[in-house]
Amino acid sequence: MKSVLALILMSTAAGAEPAPGVANEARAKMNWMLHCQGCHQPDATGSANGAPGMANDVARFLRVEGGREYLTRVPGVANAGLDNAQLAELLNWTLGTFDRQHVPNDFSPFTAEEMAAGRARPLVSDAAMMREALRNKFPASEEGSAGGD
């Protein structure tokens, strides 16, 4: 009986665990709805010829050189109508919510200063090119791990 209770407690705790670098999850989710999901869709699967899909994929950029900086410079991030602190929170929330499996164990959350530096050099038409260049660096062995639940 005790072990069952512990199991229930553990699973509840795991479900409620906030993503790293997210001070206010409700605010992050609201900012996702207001600033991202109109084009990226509620489940972050993206839209054809529009905003790229991010589900089970976006955190893989953290694992290649230049990928972390790229995420702070993409048009949707750099031009969002949010201050640097909320933008960092939103990006951290997005990574933890839609692609937790690819977030590296030693991941240090994005900070307001980092966002300020990235959005000072926003990507425009070169975003897609850079994305492909980074994608080509993704380790092939990771391909099979996408999906999850």
Binding site: N24, A26, R27, M30, N31, L34, Q86
Partner: peptide
């Protein structure tokens, strides 16, 4: 529902 802390 929008939360108050946001500036969106």
């Amino acid at each position: 529902v929008a939360v108050k802390e946001g500036n969106g």
